[in-house]
Simulated scan of single mutants.
Amino acid sequence: MTDLPRTMSAYVLHQHGGMEAQQFHTDWPVPQPGPDDVLIKVGACGCNNTDINTRTGWYSKSVTGATKGDAAQTAEGQDDPAWGGSPIQFPRIQGADAVGIVVATGPNAPSELIGKRVMLDCWQRDWSDPLNRDKTGYFGSERDGGFAQYTTADYRNTHAVDSTMTDAELATFSCSYSTAEGMLSRALVGQGEHVLITGASGGVGSALVQLAKRRGAVVIALSSPGKHAALSALGADITLERSPPDLPDALRQATGRATVDVVCDVVGGDDWPQIIDVMARGGRYACSGAIAGPMVELDLRTLYLRDLTFHGSTVVPRHIFTDLLGYIERAEIKPLVAATYPLAELPAAQTAFMDKAHIGNIVVLPAAD
């Protein structure tokens, strides 16, 4: 540690709120690795909805509107503002999708990781009880993340990666793609099945398109028309407008059938009932987000008369990340970097992220400061 700086640049969240709740520091202490930790010099860190939702406290049951990322949607003072239903500790450095080089290790961490370029499995597990979902945390939520020049992580969450992709490209994968692969795994998506994907141009949505296609599914992507060509290039078999006035008819014209086998949803909101109505008998629904709003209307007769199965998907099994790493190293999936920003411009990056004009992921670069 003697050759490393004592301070660094970092964007630090000091409370729940809008953009003003996070502050840029150029003299924040470089973290010291714990006994089981590695110290990583961050090359890039992706932006995700989880960062914005945690900052504003959107996960609280007191918030019923869409993800907006501003102070009007905050849940300050509530006791359930984070994803796990408990408060987080401030100050907190956010940023889940960190990629970088290991520069030091704690005494229990393997020293051969030093000098390796690594990606992080975001799910922080209790390694004495790793399958217990109640004992999990998230990188950038329950411990400091990657919106800084240096970060620490448990060595068991730290994976060397063999790839020619840039740091920015690799920083598009961990959060979005593990979320997407977790949804597809829960829903048991298989060869030839018709899969409807909402919010298909976002980070998780575009990951779902690629990963569902990798499984041999017939991929039906919902997004604004200006993004259809890009989604087709990713592998979407059919692209439909984000909110068709008559979804069954649109499906029938495009596929010859008015139903789908699986829905993978990160949107929710007012269009949710028609998404459920196009599920075939015995269909499966997987949800890992509600950017258009968490409050939806369900006719329980649709659920039970059609023998539907609903899956919530948050904490993923351990194999999901290692599977994803294999897909990356074998070049079976593509990175989608919509834009990069210096760390000092994180608010601008998150504003662009919330505008949803992009396809894929927006990445910040701490080394640019």
Rank of each mutant, 00 (worst) to 15 (best):
T2Q: 11
D3K: 07
T7N: 15
M8F: 03
Y11F: 14
Q15M: 00
H16F: 12
G18A: 09
H25M: 09
P35A: 10
D37W: 00
V38E: 00
I40A: 00
K41W: 01
G43V: 01
C45M: 02
N53K: 13
N53Y: 12
Y59N: 07
S60Q: 00
S62A: 13
S62Q: 10
A72V: 11
T74R: 05
Q78K: 09
D79G: 07
P81Q: 09
W83A: 14
G85N: 02
Q94D: 12
V102C: 01
P107I: 10
P107Q: 07
N108G: 11
N108H: 14
L113A: 03
K116Q: 15
L120N: 01
W127D: 09
S128M: 12
D129Y: 06
R143C: 08
G146M: 08
A148P: 08
Q149T: 02
T151V: 07
T152M: 06
N157W: 01
V161C: 03
S163W: 00
T164K: 14
T164A: 15
M165S: 11
F173S: 07
C175T: 09
Y177P: 06
L184A: 00
R186I: 07
L188N: 13
Q191D: 14
E193M: 04
G203R: 00
S206C: 03
A207C: 02
L208W: 05
L211C: 10
A212M: 08
A212Y: 05
G216M: 11
V219Q: 12
S224D: 11
G226N: 12
A230S: 12
L231F: 11
L231H: 06
A233W: 09
G235H: 12
G235Y: 11
D237Y: 01
I238V: 15
L240Q: 04
L240N: 03
A250I: 12
A258Y: 13
T259F: 08
D261C: 00
D261M: 01
V262D: 01
V263Q: 08
C264T: 15
G268M: 11
D270E: 10
W272D: 05
W272P: 02
Q274H: 10
V278R: 01
R284D: 04
C287Y: 11
C287K: 03
S288W: 03
G289L: 07
G293F: 15
V296N: 04
E297V: 12
L298W: 02
L300I: 13
T302C: 09
L303N: 06
Y304A: 05
F310A: 13
H311F: 15
T314M: 13
V315F: 14
P317V: 12
I320Q: 01
L325E: 05
E329H: 08
I333R: 05
A338F: 10
T340M: 01
T340N: 06
A344P: 05
A352W: 03
F353W: 00
H358G: 03
I359S: 02
I359T: 10
V364P: 08
A368G: 07
D369Q: 14
